[in-house]
């Protein structure tokens, strides 16, 4: 738990200042270097030029952000639902866990560079291969977060509930599931960042639209400025999704903030 600085919005701003400052300094240095060295924008465009390109191509960027967002969210929702359903089954059937976990671990060792083209080959240029890739990348971290979270339940709480005559299912609902929520949200925040990367990569390998396609086309026409513009958009998208998960956690797990103001 971070103590010391107040948890208010003002406190967060003050804590964020050094990070913002160093990012701003890096951008300024980059701009100065490009101007003084006279390096070609075909090799290294200045930040100002990237911003210009973002403005000039805002319609293009926006149109291609939506397919990426939709692949990310659909794939992620799919993987979280499966991970949740399976985590419940695994919690009730430890034998199943021992049987299936090795398979999931292997699924994490598959190189995306090989899987992505295969998925396009098998499922075409539509949304399906993107959803599958996003799910492949995010499924296991979400499953592990949930399973570990159930295991982290205070054994005294379980003993207490059993002494009250609670069924295994009631213990799961009232104790194990809520205990897993902080783990679930930690997994969510990390996985959502993987999800965006996976969606863009699978577009890059084969799609009709999306930020991955913008990057691919920009690369093929030697436009690093447009590539970087797409990168800024995709990073922003990731940060926004990360922020939304953090916000969701704050709203849904309000109890975690309880007692910290004293």
């Amino acid at each position: 738990m971070t103590k010391g600085l107040p948890r208010s919005a003002g406190g967060r701003l003050i804590r964020g200042l050094p990070a913002l400052g160093s990012v701003a300094a890096a951008i300024v240095l980059w701009e100065i270097y490009v101007r003084l060295s006279g390096i070609s924008p075909l090799v290294l465009p200045a930040p100002s030029r990237v911003v210009e390109q973002m403005a000039a191509n805002r319609a293009l960027l926006w149109e291609n952000t939506l397919p990426t967002l939709s692949a990310t969210l659909t794939g992620f929702a799919f993987s979280v639902s499966i991970a949740f359903a399976l985590s419940v089954a695994l919690d009730f059937l430890p034998k199943l866990r021992r049987a299936l976990f090795p398979i999931f671990v292997v699924s994490q060792t598959l190189p995306l560079v090989a899987i992505a083209p295969l998925a396009v080959l098998w499922f075409g240029f539509g949304l399906t291969p993107k959803i599958l890739l996003v799910a492949l990348v995010t499924f296991f971290p979400m499953l592990v977060a949930l399973v570990d979270g159930y295991e982290a339940t205070d054994p005294e709480i379980e003993t207490l509930m059993r002494s009250m005559g609670a069924s295994r299912w009631k213990v799961f609902r009232a104790a194990r599931f809520p205990s897993a929520m902080p783990y679930f949200f930690a997994g969510l925040r990390i996985s959502i960042t993987y999800a965006v990367v996976a969606a863009i990569f699978s577009e890059y390998v084969g799609a009709r639209a999306g930020l991955g396609i913008v990057i691919l086309n920009a690369k093929n026409s030697f436009r690093p400025d447009l590539m970087l513009a797409a990168v800024v958009v995709s990073s922003t998208l990731t940060l926004v999704l990360f922020g939304v998960s953090a916000l969701l956690q704050r709203v849904l797990l309000r109890w975690r903030e309880a007692g910290q103001g004293q």
């Binding site: 205070d154 005294e156 709480i157 005559g165 797990l253 109890w255």
Partner: peptide
């Protein structure tokens, strides 16, 4: 499964989310 005892465990075992 007798319903005879009300048990108070060694630590309070209050659920922090409730």
């Amino acid at each position: 499964n007798a319903t005879t005892f009300a048990f108070m465990p060694q630590r309070d075992a209050l659920m922090p989310w409730r």
